[in-house]
């Protein structure tokens, strides 16, 4: 009988540490170089996070979808839809909580539709959500009409702009949902199914994992998360524009991949996605305060993403060995060798 070693209880998540160091470095940099960035101390820095908390919430749902090896292109539009549903309700004078509930329900239903199409019809998620994204966009645009709802009650605005113990409400929502997502992914049957389906849907099926139910659940949850993001957006901007969530789709996906989630599924940690959310969010906030144009910020985001992914791949492989092999190949490369016989 052989003895098998148990793993260490705590293992250092390398990529998470890199992201955390980058975040600290970034905050330090902006604090030193930009006068207004830390003018109000820690609470001031936290308030800056209000702006990107909804994107973070979208990224959490998206991370679960991507962990299964799928993608949801309709999440941004779904957030816009829920913002408008919530806004219209408020404008008509319904109870605030009822409006929020309706918004969450709308998001969940869109997610459920996506999930059922992906799981039962077996259509690739990219195509399904590309289609539902169009449908949702047209529905929400006609709902919004010529004058989208704006100027809501003070209590509702408080959701997007208030704070509990210096932590702004929507940052709090992001963090709470973040912890919930960590628990779901790491410690529940559903979470384990998500990961296994992401690594190999076929093997998952052969080992009795309910693959279809898992896919349907993940898309439904993502819809609900988009609903939360939509409500937060409406509260933060005190209005519900038709593109308010739509433009956050790509930033959300960016956060997920920067957070180290494999775009083909299986590998990834939610904790690292949360840190990546703060990293990217503060990057754009800091640069805005520095006085950069949004064009510059977009470009820097792209560069950061490429740099980070290259670094990550290098960390995973034996970097030096890989580099040595590549250099050697470059040196020994000869045109005559590349011609086939």
């Amino acid at each position: 009988m052989t003895t098998l070693a148990m793993p260490r209880r705590w293992q250092l998540p390398g990529w998470g540490l890199c992201l955390l160091l980058a975040l600290i470095g970034e905050l330090t940099y902006f604090t030193i170089t930009t006068r207004y960035f830390a003018a109000n101390g820690v609470p001031g820095i936290l308030v800056l996070a209000e702006q990107f908390a909804p994107t973070g919430v979208l990224a959490l749902g998206m991370a679960m979808v991507i962990l299964t090896g799928s993608i949801d292109l309709s999440a941004g539009a779904t957030a816009s839809l829920t913002a408008i549903v919530c806004g219209l309700g408020l404008e008509k004078g319904y109870n605030m909580w009822l409006c929020i509930l309706a918004a969450l329900l709308a998001g969940t239903l869109v997610g459920l539709a996506n999930g059922l199409l992906v799981a039962l019809a077996g259509i690739d998620s990219l195509l399904v959500t590309l289609a539902t994204q169009f449908i949702v966009t047209s529905v929400l645009t006609s709902l919004a009409g010529a004058e989208p709802p704006f100027n809501f009650s003070v209590t509702f605005q408080g959701l997007g702009q208030g704070a509990i113990a210096d932590v702004p409400d929507d940052v709090l929502v992001f963090l709470v949902l973040g912890v919930a997502t960590i628990l779901i992914v790491n410690y529940t049957t559903l979470g384990r199914s998500i990961v296994l389906v992401g690594f190999s849907q076929r093997a998952a099926q052969y080992t009795g994992v309910a693959t279809r139910r898992t896919l349907a659940s993940v898309f439904t949850m993502n819809g609900a998360f988009a609903g939360v993001a939509g409500v937060l957006l409406a509260a933060y901007y005190n209005s519900a524009q038709p593109d308010t969530g739509t433009i956050l789709l790509l930033p959300a996906i960016t956060i997920v991949v920067l957070g180290g989630v494999d775009i083909f599924g299986g590998r990834g940690r939610i904790g690292e996605v949360i840190i990546a959310g703060f990293l990217l969010g503060y990057l754009s906030q800091g640069m805005l305060i520095e006085g950069n144009s949004s064009l510059t910020i977009t470009m820097v985001t792209g560069l950061v993403l490429i740099g980070a992914l290259v670094l990550k791949i290098s960390l995973e492989r034996n970097f030096r060995q890989a580099l040595a092999v590549r250099l050697q190949r470059l040196r020994t490369w000869h045109p005559s060798l590349s011609r086939p016989d």
Binding site: L4, L183, T188, R192, A203, T207, G208
Partner: peptide
């Protein structure tokens, strides 16, 4: 096999619902 997954999770994949839990929920 789930090629990239560790031995432990490969083994437990067929009995996810029967794994030991904390509070009856968390693996």
């Amino acid at each position: 096999i789930f090629a990239d997954v560790d031995i432990a999770r490969n083994e437990s994949s067929a009995i996810l619902a029967r794994l030991p839990r904390r509070l009856g929920v968390f693996i």
